[in-house]
Simulated assay, not measured.
Amino acid sequence: MSSEPKPRDIAPLRQPMVTSIGIIMGFILNFLASWATEDEGRATVFTNADRAVAFTLLLSIALMCIVLFRLLDIRQPDHVQVARYFTTYRLYVAAIVIAVSGVGLALFL
């Protein structure tokens, strides 16, 4: 008798990712809010370095929103969830790398 293997339960993997994205997104939004309210008498995004930082941070926030949607969307059948999780995990890592590179740009430019 050949029976299909039971789908892997990804709930324990999902919860830490949701928590960490919430924390990281909170830090990024706090950084952007304090950066946007600096009173220097000119536009916040003024130089090409400012544009690069803003682009990377906004891109990482957009990717994090997509990851959150994919993590919280439970409409997928069980046999698809594991493959979907691995794609979501790659997007998660990409969002973190982009966010760290954006903060690095803010520090060094």
Rank of each mutant, 00 (worst) to 15 (best):
A49Q: 04
R42C: 06
A36D: 15
P77G: 01
T56N: 12
A43M: 11
H79C: 02
Q76K: 15
L58Y: 03
P77K: 01
F31L: 08
V80K: 14
R70A: 11
E38Y: 08
N48K: 13
D73Y: 11
F55S: 11
N48V: 04
M64E: 03
D39V: 12
R42E: 13
R70P: 01
A62D: 12
V80C: 05
Q76C: 08
V45D: 02
A49P: 00
Y85Q: 01
C65G: 15
F31E: 03
T47F: 02
F69I: 10
V45K: 03
D39N: 15
L71Q: 00
Q81H: 00
W35L: 07
V53A: 01
F55C: 02
Y85A: 04
V45S: 09
A62F: 11
T87V: 07
A52C: 02
D78V: 02
F69C: 07
M64C: 08
A49V: 03
R51T: 12
A33C: 05
R70H: 09
L63H: 05
N48C: 08
R70S: 07
A54G: 00
D50H: 12
D73E: 10
F46S: 15
Q76G: 05
I74V: 06
V53F: 00
T56R: 10
R75M: 06
N30S: 15
T87G: 07
T47V: 06
Q81P: 00
D78M: 04
T47Y: 03
F69G: 06
V67W: 03
I66G: 05
A36Q: 14
A83E: 08
V45E: 05
F55R: 10
A36P: 03
T44Y: 07
A83Q: 07
E40W: 11
I74R: 08
L57S: 03
V67C: 04
V82R: 02
T44V: 14
T37Q: 12
L32D: 04
F86L: 04
V67D: 05
T56P: 02
V67A: 09
V80P: 00
S34D: 13
R42N: 06
F31P: 01
H79K: 09
M64F: 12
F46M: 04
T56S: 15
F86D: 09
A43H: 07
R84I: 06
A83R: 06
S60L: 10
L32F: 09
F86K: 09
S34F: 15
A62L: 12
F31S: 02
A52H: 05
D39S: 13
D73L: 03
A62W: 09
